[in-house]
């Protein structure tokens, strides 16, 4: 019976592929709230993203203990401690894309690494703010999109700050499009079907669940 056996073998390989991707991902350990706001220049072009990460209290506690910072909520950090926390946060390993993605009419836009970082611990949560510059400033007409996610879903992001444009954003509107399991289920199903057979089905699990900000300018 060669037919069923080959089928079983193929099923085994498919299972292996999805499990191997899944065992690396699908397991968020870190939760980050916050947002990513577009920064406009005087001509109304996007020049940067202003990113805010607010870590969950458990991860914050861990980071504070690792860095030897005061982790009880009532002790404020010194300027030196804030600087060391900001440094720790912005030492990105090679290949890390920064988990914030800007697209212009669906095409990815290159962003710089973290700049002008500032960190604090507020109400037991580590908060870090930094800028990511856009290489070539552009007018988001008709549209641009900011998505915040970790493709491997090790970190689960949520945009909890209402999106707000900084600078001259006259004629532009920002809309938050959070992931909603019921509403986005059809898209989720479609993307599951669209995954080519030779690719890990879970490789972009974080992207499936991403909160997004739509920017539209006249």
């Amino acid at each position: 019976m060669p037919e069923p056996r080959r089928a079983r073998f193929r099923t085994g390989l498919a299972l292996a592929a999805c499990l191997s991707a899944g065992s690396a991902a699908a397991h968020p350990h870190v939760f980050i709230d916050g947002g990513a706001n577009p920064v406009f220049d005087a001509e109304g072009r996007i020049t940067a993203l202003h990113v805010t990460w607010i870590y969950d209290p458990f991860t914050s506690l861990y980071m504070a203990e690792e860095l030897g910072l005061p982790s009880d909520p009532d002790t404020p950090l010194s300027a030196e401690e804030r600087a060391s926390l900001a440094r720790y946060q912005t030492e990105w390993t090679e290949g890390f894309e920064g988990d914030s993605y800007l697209t212009r009419d669906g095409t990815p836009v290159a962003l710089s690494g973290p700049l002008e970082a500032d960190a604090e611990i507020s109400e037991g949560r580590v908060v870090i703010r930094f800028l990511r510059r856009v290489e070539t400033p552009f007018r988001p007409a008709p549209e641009a999109e900011i998505a915040v996610y970790d493709p491997s879903y090790y970190t689960a992001y949520a945009i909890t700050d209402a999106p707000e444009a900084e600078g001259n954003a006259a004629g532009c509107s920002l809309t938050l499009d959070p992931f909603e399991p019921t509403q986005d289920l059809a898209a989720l199903q479609q993307s599951l079907f669209d995954i080519p057979a030779d690719e890990d089905p879970d490789q972009d699990l974080g992207g499936l669940f991403a909160d997004r900000i739509e920017i539209r300018c006249d």
């Binding site: 968020p28 939760f31 969950d56 209290p57 458990f58 991860t59 914050s60 506690l61 037991g124 879903y153 689960a156 992931f179 399991p181 669940f209």
Partner: peptide
């Protein structure tokens, strides 16, 4: 996704 949301709540409570 739902489990991850619950885990966020649990991690906050843990801290």
């Amino acid at each position: 996704w739902w489990a991850a949301r619950q885990q966020h709540v649990v991690q906050t409570a843990l801290a």
